[in-house]
Design a protein around this nucleic acid. Structure first.
Lengths: 208, 208
DNA sequence: TACACTATATGATCGAAATCATGATTTTGC
DNA sequence: GCAAAATCATGATTTCGATCATATAGTGTA
């Protein structure tokens, strides 16, 4: 039961039947927008993207779930999934039955609190994402996203995440590299060196 | 104790000391980004905007809390507030002590579950917001936001919410009115008539 | 009432990112 | 291993929204 150790909340009381280990191939979908919700998930290895599709073919990467994190927690209280979940690389995930989780919430206060914390983190992450999308210049936006989230996955995926085209993102990255604010590790892999991470001093004036 | 009736979760067990009623004037700040977190809030009347400020003066309206909703729930698990909370119109709010709420989570399973549900709703709302910001055309974006969230507050506030300038938003609105997709109630007040709300048929192909 | 201030509205210009285009490189599936 | 597909990269052109400017309608208040 090694996996229980790395779960962000204690599962000792969860029925064994409530847990299933799944192996996903690349591009394999775990669930799709509109599917009936039956479970939340925990990533052991690999990565899963949560993607929302809009009417006219637009798509947003809402979240990239990586090793050691849970996802689709919000589905506990909604009837259908509101996004697609697709493995972007081969992944192992644990499926946690929705009904069992809900039962455990009622039975185990510590579990409930741990789950609440995860939800709160989700909210914070989404807010950070919203904050980044509000930044106007492509260069500033890409840099902010790189500082806050890092380049998870391909540049193309990163571009969708920051709400720009791949071209615009690449151009911004190459300019940032020129300026020394970003390091190009290798083709398609960029990173913010520690030195360039300036602590944002929150100097808010009390005057309106 | 009228207010307890309209709270989205049962507060009967919350210590009386944990609740304080506050009266906010227009533009009065409840807390600011960086302040130590001590409470979550419930809106009785009026409206409170949660605004996030980025390094270079950009701002995002993360959330508009209106009558009957709670806000700053995420602060339960973080040390400082990550955004400003300001009344955009005179407002009455109830301050709910953070420590008391956390105690109640442990003591009352029903309360814990109700709170979890609220968090989940928050996540869903933020996702919808992210989805809207991913829409490229100004016209499409404004229309989508109007359908999903309605025009809460002024056009200027709505413009910030959708990530456009006031001018671009007004132009988009006036075009949408021309097309009959949006109704102009009066100067600065727009609405999507029921007839134009097309149910988005989720026809996702299983291929790819 | 008069004044200041803010929000709404629309027009003109400019610039930044989307789009289109073309190759090179890497990965993936057979 | 090899062909096909996807990704990375950069250049040229176009388009849409930002910006600047100006005017009007409300709103608060002295």
């Amino acid at each position: 039961m090694i996996e229980i150790m790395i779960l962000p909340f204690p599962l000792s009381n969860l029925k064994r039947t409530g847990r299933t280990k799944l192996h996903l191939k690349k591009n394999e979908a775990l669930f799709r927008q509109g599917d009936i919700t039956t479970a939340i998930f925990f990533v052991i290895s690999g990565a899963v993207h949560l993607v929302r599709h809009t009417h006219e073919g637009h798509s947003v990467i809402l979240h990239r779930a990586v090793s050691g994190t849970t996802f689709a927690e919000a589905s506990l209280f909604s009837d259908v999934y509101h996004c697609d979940a697709t493995a972007t690389e081969p992944a192992e995930v644990i499926r946690l039955s929705k009904t069992d989780i809900l039962a455990l919430v009622t039975a185990d206060p510590d579990f409930a609190q741990a789950l609440l914390k995860r939800f709160a983190q989700d909210v914070q992450t989404h807010r950070k994402h919203l904050e980044i999308l509000a930044i106007k210049g492509a260069e500033d936006r890409v840099f902010a996203a790189l500082v806050s989230f890092g380049q998870s996955g391909t540049v193309t995926a990163f571009a969708i995440f920051v709400g720009l085209t791949t071209e615009a993102t690449l151009r911004a990255l190459s300019k940032l590299v020129q300026q020394g604010k970003v390091t190009k590790l290798k083709r398609g892999h960029y990173e913010v060196p520690d030195t360039s991470i300036t602590p944002r001093s929150v100097t808010i004036k009390s005057s309106v």
